[in-house]
Simulated scan of single mutants.
Amino acid sequence: MSIHRYTTLISAANLAALIASGSETMTLFDCRFDLTDENAGKLAYQAHHLPGAHYVHLANVLSGPCTGQNGRHPLPERATLAQQLAACGLHHNHQVIAYDAQGGIFAARLWWLLRWLGHEAVAVLDGGLQAWQKANLPLSSTRPIARSGDFEPTAPLAVTTDVTTVMRNLSTHKYTLIDARSADRYRGQNETLDAVGGHIPGAINRFYRDNLTADGHFKPAHVLRDEFNSLLDEKPAQRVILQCGSGVSACLNALAMEIAGLHGAALYAGSWSEWCADPKRPVATG
């Protein structure tokens, strides 16, 4: 009997059924995090989490070392990340489910990273922890026993780009840049995370929360497709570069585009925090 593989989203009901089935080919990750308090997500996990979930920390696992010039959350080394996930029991044939309680941005980061490692069977819990709790589904404070898995990186399913390409695009206009930050930060107002306010010249704004309904679930695929197509002006997804402040919330736009059937957009992982670290790079505001 074939087993359904989730590659974008999974509902709370379907995840509950998967957990109840006692599936030995699933790994569940709690990705909760707070950009202003790096211990908050881990403490929340220790208090309660979905049964069987392992915790992964944005800064320590889902990001690499910062140099001051490569952004606030640079990509980790592929081999290092794969080893850390395998240490949680991840095998190459596992269905991975990621969730958070912050609108999906940190779960989407893990979703994108696993695709970057070549793993397709990874999905985000639609509606996050809030959807799970609203359905009155059980939580646990027990940490799962870690058993080593055999997961290793393979050919990437996700595309990256770098600051050189983005800089070159200022004159070639080959790519459409989509900035996932809030509108005020995009304009250069109320900047609290980076030393410089503003955006990369030519970038257009698509706040990551615009992909969600009022209750925190993703909008239907056809709605997302229409909304992104209106931004792209018939440009194919392969000519899109997604960015944000540090390469995290842009992953939610990547997930939304995948749900919409718009495949192939690249992530500029360094994003605004890398771009603005060099005062020679131009800045736009307003």
Rank of each mutant, 00 (worst) to 15 (best):
D226H: 12
L35S: 05
E274A: 06
D162N: 08
D37E: 06
A121R: 15
A214L: 13
W272E: 00
A155C: 10
I105T: 13
S140N: 09
L50F: 05
V159M: 11
H54V: 13
H57N: 05
P138Y: 08
R239Q: 15
D179F: 07
W116G: 09
Q130W: 07
N70K: 07
G202Y: 04
L231D: 03
T161H: 08
T164K: 11
T36C: 15
L62T: 03
R72L: 04
A121I: 15
L267R: 03
H119E: 02
P153S: 02
S273V: 13
Y6F: 15
V223H: 03
L113R: 14
H4V: 14
S11T: 14
A107L: 13
P156E: 00
H199S: 01
C251H: 01
G264S: 09
H91G: 04
A135H: 09
Q238W: 09
M257A: 03
R32L: 05
M26Y: 03
L81Q: 00
A277M: 12
T8A: 13
H57C: 13
L193K: 08
T176K: 06
L212K: 02
A86K: 14
G41W: 10
C66H: 11
A180E: 03
Q102K: 10
L212G: 00
D179R: 15
A12G: 02
S21G: 07
V61N: 03
W112T: 00
V240A: 00
A256R: 05
L62I: 14
R281G: 01
A284D: 02
N14E: 14
V96N: 01
R168E: 11
